[in-house]
Amino acid sequence: MKHITMFILLLLMACEEVPEEVYDNPLDIEAITEEGIETPALMFFPDEININTKEIFTVSVYALDVQNVAGAYININYDQDKLLLIAINPGTFFSDLQDPLYFSETQNSGKIELYTVFFGADSSSVSGTGSFFSIMFAASVSGTSSLTYGTDCELVDPDDIQIEIKGFGEGVVNAH
């Protein structure tokens, strides 16, 4: 019995491996920098979604490592044959500011246009990393589809000066 236990233990130890070290959080600046995405950037979080068909998921639109943002225009493309837009909710990036405005315009062409702006008396702004919106989708059919940012997205400071967006993340939805 002792021998068998020892043998099993050794067998288990022989089967053990060191796990591969993977850091792929889309909001981890170091990680995305290694992937070639520079900041400031617009990212999806999470950037990879695995769901079953007919299930609803939420993906957030994040501004990563931005400075003095007071307004944004964000253009998102999705595969309308595979994903069904359910709802668009405000994010938390401007939640500390007074009365931010949120607009969204959806078209049947698989394009979502989002606007948010803050008109503060003292020309306040936010910096760092935060979400502008969270969007709810449902996977209508199985398959892989992607969420992408349009190239005409804009971030502006309180003086309405455009902030350069150097990187754009991409979201992947795997519906089974």
Partner: peptide, 29 residues
């Protein structure tokens, strides 16, 4: 925790902890 974190501070924290744990794994192995 790292993969689910959205706060950059927490992301960095969990990432550091994960790296330390990974080093311990390698050392023990």
């Amino acid at each position: 925790s790292y993969a689910n974190a959205t706060d950059p501070v927490l992301i960095a924290h969990y990432k550091t902890q994960s790296q330390n744990s990974h080093e311990n794994i390698e050392s023990a192995m």
